[in-house]
């Protein structure tokens, strides 16, 4: 997994996620991509902040909105681009696509197309680590919609009763597709549910990277040292639609604009300028470098070979 050496790398990774999903959005608009995808634009600080608190051996599970988790974990942009384009050299050799990018041997246990589908799976990885006395941690990313699924409750209860080394990270982006948290919950403060399961829960500003890093480090440390699971609710927002076909009928332009004004990349870049980690006015140059890297990855992927048709019949069984 990716080791974040300095604060600039955190910024670059957030930019890479944004550049990647903006590119994917653009390709859909051109009709150059098959299928669908869900964009992480706006939520970049959550994946980067949490994953930067991890170390080699730790594992994560992502969601259908999963490009950000994979890139923050250090998956290769080219192999991800190839998967989006359905190419044989993609992470899943063209069989998974956007919603199933995984690198199991590296510890990225997969994006998951089923809302809350990986919440039990993450408990299993953590259960194995505990049973084998390995000081590894498992992180589960999920959205506010997943909290409404039954397995959310089952998983948090199991993790707490067995004191499993799990960090549950709820990316509360305010909408489960079109359903706002206000319409989906009587009590929409998701972190408060933690108390009912007997674990600590905290709400954090999901647009503010240093705050996420702080609560994630605390939760990861607790898990690693045998203190059991935690629930982090990161308040965030997806700037783009739920997926490529969203007409945004359930929210206002003003609301989107308001959230964009607290952009996690802009805020973190300003901090870095202040601290001297980033040259004043240095952001556009870094942006250019990252956007070019992503562009090059998709160009490379576009020229990669298609999978053999017969490969569709392979890999059903090991």
């Amino acid at each position: 997994m990716k080791k974040y050496e300095n604060r600039l790398e955190l910024l670059e990774t957030m930019l890479r996620i944004r550049a990647f999903d903006e590119k994917v959005d653009e390709l859909y608009a051109e009709g150059a991509l098959h299928g669908t995808a869900h964009f992480y634009v706006g939520q970049e600080a959550v994946a980067v902040g949490v994953i930067s608190a991890l170390r080699d051996g730790d594992v994560i599970t992502g969601t259908h909105r999963g490009h950000g988790h994979a890139l923050a974990f250090g998956l290769d942009v080219k192999k991800m681009a190839a998967e989006l384009l359905g190419k044989a050299s993609g992470y899943c050799h063209g069989k998974g696509g956007s919603m199933h990018i995984a690198d199991v041997s590296a510890g990225m246990l997969g994006a998951n197309g089923i809302v809350a589908g990986s919440m039990g799976i993450v408990c299993g990885a953590a259960w194995a680590f505990k049973r084998r006395k390995e000081d590894r941690v498992a992180v589960c990313f999920f959205g506010d919609g997943a909290v409404q699924e039954g397995i959310f409750s089952e998983s948090l209860n199991m993790a707490a009763v067995w004191s499993l080394p799990v960090v549950f990270v709820c990316e509360n982006n305010q909408y489960a597709m079109s359903l706002s948290v206000e319409r989906g919950f009587a009590n929409s403060r998701i972190s408060e549910k933690a108390d009912g399961y007997g674990m600590p829960g905290v709400t954090v500003d999901g647009m503010e990277l240093p705050e996420i890093m702080e609560v994630a480090s605390e939760a990861v440390e607790r898990a690693r040292s045998g203190g059991g699971p935690s629930l982090i609710e990161a308040n965030t927002y997806r700037y783009l639609g739920h997926s490529k076909s969203d007409a945004n009928l359930y929210r206002t332009r003003e609301e989107i604009k308001e959230w964009r004004e607290s952009d996690p990349i802009g805020r973190f870049a300003a901090r870095l300028e202040k601290s001297g980690d980033l040259e004043k006015g240095g952001l556009p140059e870094i942006e250019k470098k990252i956007y070019e890297e992503v562009e090059a990855a998709f160009q490379w992927a576009a020229n990669e070979p298609e999978p053999e048709p017969g490969s569709a019949l392979e890999d059903v069984y090991a």
Partner: peptide
């Protein structure tokens, strides 16, 4: 559902 999922996750990591 939870412990079936747990079994699947445990299997994924050996």
């Amino acid at each position: 559902a939870g412990f079936t999922g747990l079994g699947i996750g445990a299997a994924l990591v050996g």
